[in-house]
């Protein structure tokens, strides 16, 4: 009883990486992309991973989201040992627990905005997918564009559809890879606001990969990736205040 009470007081862990390494074999050398990365992200946290190009940010994101596998180490996602799951089991876990927002939107060109949004819900077997989709499109301000195809939408509109798509399954965890990098500053800022607003509304854990220090600062935690090693930046005093 006491143990149970204590457990409920501890924060719920959504993502955990232990001694995570990733190496790739090149024709004449072995390249280390991630070195002994240890990481714990609690439920509801917003975390930014920053770092220079080629530092291993996206590789880490891929492994944490179950899109890629590590060379060694352990990864737990929503309590499931990703490193022990096969490709299909990881896909099913993603369908249940994970949402994505990508740098280049990656909408399916043959589906309308609404259909793109409802696709993950259908994959997860959610019944009222269309109603949810319409509501989310309304939330991102695209009610009038529901039946447009991606090629008929501007970049900012496409990313808003992608954000609606990411939230439709009410995922426990949302991974965002440079969500505003392909957009102009004003549109980018709007997209970021939308992302954080929906995140807050749904209480989603957010893992964000970005170059943009301003965007990173909007997250509760900032992790710095450098040559495959991860370190946590201490929040500045002003930020805490």
């Amino acid at each position: 009883m006491v143990k149970k009470t204590l457990m409920s007081l501890l924060p719920k862990i959504d993502i955990q990486a232990k001694a995570l390494s990733k190496e790739v074999q090149l024709p004449d050398a072995r390249l280390t992309i991630l070195q002994q990365v240890n990481l714990t992200i609690n439920s509801g946290e917003t975390v930014a991973v920053v770092g220079a190009s080629g530092s291993g940010k996206s590789t880490l994101l891929g492994i944490l989201a179950g899109l890629d596998t590590a060379s060694s180490g352990e990864v737990y996602l929503a309590g499931q040992p990703l490193h022990q799951l096969d490709d299909d089991a990881r896909a099913q876990l993603r369908a249940r627990e994970v949402g994505f927002v990508f740098q280049s939107f990656l909408l399916l060109p043959s589906l309308t905005a609404l259909e793109n949004v409802t696709l993950p819900a259908e994959l997860a077997g959610i019944k009222d997918a269309t109603a949810r989709g319409r509501k989310l499109l309304a939330d991102v301000g695209l009610t009038a564009r529901a039946d447009f195809y991606p090629s008929q939408l501007s970049g900012g509109e496409q990313q808003r559809v992608a954000i609606a798509r990411a939230f439709i399954t009410e995922p426990a965890i949302l991974f965002a890879d440079e969500p505003s990098a392909n957009l102009d500053a004003a549109t980018g800022a709007k997209i970021e606001d939308l992302l954080f607003a929906l995140n807050e509304q749904q209480g989603t854990t957010l893992v964000l990969v970005t170059h943009n220090p301003q965007l990173a600062k909007r997250c509760q935690r900032q992790l710095n990736m450098h040559a495959g090693e991860l370190s946590e930046q201490q929040p500045e005093v002003s930020d805490v205040a």
Partner: peptide, 15 residues
């Protein structure tokens, strides 16, 4: 290719 990668990221299995 990209469409398949996207739907797989969204939870579709290879099968």
């Amino acid at each position: 290719q990209m469409a398949v990668a996207v739907i797989k990221a969204l939870g579709v299995t290879t099968a």
